[in-house]
Design a protein around this nucleic acid. Structure first.
Lengths: 255, 255
DNA sequence: TCTCAAGGCTGATCTGCATCAAGGTGAGCC
DNA sequence: GGCTCACCTTGATGCAGATCAGCCTTGAGA
């Protein structure tokens, strides 16, 4: 049984799962759950550990990674406040990913049985969870798309724009932000060499598209980044097989 | 309101969502839902269409794809009987993917409100759905891992082994099977050129690892494929940064 | 029987980026 | 101060696989 601390933080306001913390019977009193603080390079959980809860990131940032048979680490995502963590565990009751914090962060834990009870009662909680998982799925698929269709410049520009959007949606500056992950992490995530990431940073800075100071990025020409993603700006031209419009559509025979 | 046809097919036996079709009050009578047949290159749904149901593939095979801004198609997955389809739609209430059949296939449709009702009542249905989505997520992440760590030979061998496992788990031969997708589809999915796929097929056949006859594949040396995935067999050597074992672990301060 | 398009195979060439090598910077610590 | 280590940058070189070009096979339809 978990104990609730009767103090609600402003960080809870935008939480997708806030419905779980609000006590609907006592209208003014809200149940608030305990929060845990982690520090840089701590693990929230590791691959192979039992799954018994999902988490919501309240502040800070995390990376998720898989380890290949050969011992290589592959970062599969970066997460920011409001994001759901631990969704990989439902499949086997065991985590397949390892989650490591990139900086001092705070998370909110929701035990599975607690979640299941809430789902039984509330259609909106059911939907929120499915929506969260669906979003994670779509992010992954989009990433695969980019991974296969883009060259290094495009991937890197796309990465910066994604970060920019994430910060903006969280009420932070879309133009100036600090990278909480290292160049090595970025390279790993994007599937390229560190040297390539480094060269991208230098190149984009020379063009005045961005400004780089250690881990602080300032975007000076947002449009240029968008153009770069679309390949307008880069040297890269690719063979682009246009998608054929198939005539058959929603054919059907019921039996 | 949907009408149920009082005929249950053997295809329903292994369905993850069979709990939805069994009427638990009347123990011997089972509710069976309508099934729809589609043909090769029909679309189950297209990106942009409203989401109002998920589907279970009963027979045949499907590919899911995204279209990039530049009109490029990226195949994000192949699906086989028993797989859940349409999970991408929860996020925005609109499908982000397009699903096209690779051959004559049959699907079972579960409307969202019907699913939601079932989830309200049954913990096992809730779990099955979360499990299905979690699996999809893990498959994607594993794919990203492979995509970034493997060379063409490894990816292709891995692709064959994945298919082999899928067929085996469905009671079919793990050694001999027909590819329902074209070489172009395989190449697109794996993020390589068609020519590379073609060369892989030829090369693996020359080595006697597999036998190729049009779209019929016979695996003659399963172990060799596994070795290939692990890089033993391929020429490719890569820089492998071993994962550091961090000393800090599950640190915690509650506040 | 001929035509044509879709799908597939193979050899030659080119290039984006990984890899290798080496040097720079700054924080923490003795 | 000076040492070490983690992290980052830059230049030179090589190669896996994309791209290009051309040909073969198959099957549908006239």
């Amino acid at each position: 049984m978990s104990h609730y601390v009767s103090q609600q933080s402003s960080l809870c306001q935008n939480c997708a799962m806030s419905g779980m913390c609000l006590d609907k019977t006592a209208k003014s009193v809200s149940k608030v759950r305990s929060h845990k603080i982690y520090h840089k390079s701590d693990a929230l959980f590791r691959a192979g550990e039992n799954f018994d809860a999902i988490y919501i990131l309240r502040s800070g940032s995390v990376k998720s990674s898989l380890i290949s048979d050969t011992g290589q680490e592959q970062i599969t995502g970066f997460y920011f406040p409001g994001d759901l963590l631990g969704l990989d565990g439902f499949e086997k009751g065991v985590h397949s990913q390892t989650l490591k914090f990139l900086e001092t962060s705070s998370v909110c834990r929701i035990a599975y049985n607690e979640l299941d009870n809430a789902m039984a009662k509330s259609s909106s909680i059911r939907f929120k969870l499915l929506q969260g998982m669906s979003e994670a799925l779509n992010v992954d698929d989009k990433f695969i798309l980019n991974s296969h269709c883009m060259n290094a410049s495009q991937k890197f520009a796309s990465f910066l724009l994604n970060l920019s959007e994430k910060f903006e949606s969280r009420g932070l500056s879309s133009h100036t932000f600090d990278l909480s992950m290292s160049r090595v992490d970025i390279a790993n995530y994007l599937g390229m060499a560190v040297e390539t990431v480094s060269r991208q940073l230098t190149q984009r800075q020379k063009e005045q598209t961005i400004n780089v100071n250690k881990r602080r990025i300032t975007i000076r020409d947002m449009q240029c980044l968008h153009d770069c993603v679309n390949g307008d700006n880069s040297l890269a031209k690719q063979y682009i097989p246009k998608v054929k419009v198939s005539s058959s559509h929603h054919s059907s025979v019921i039996y």
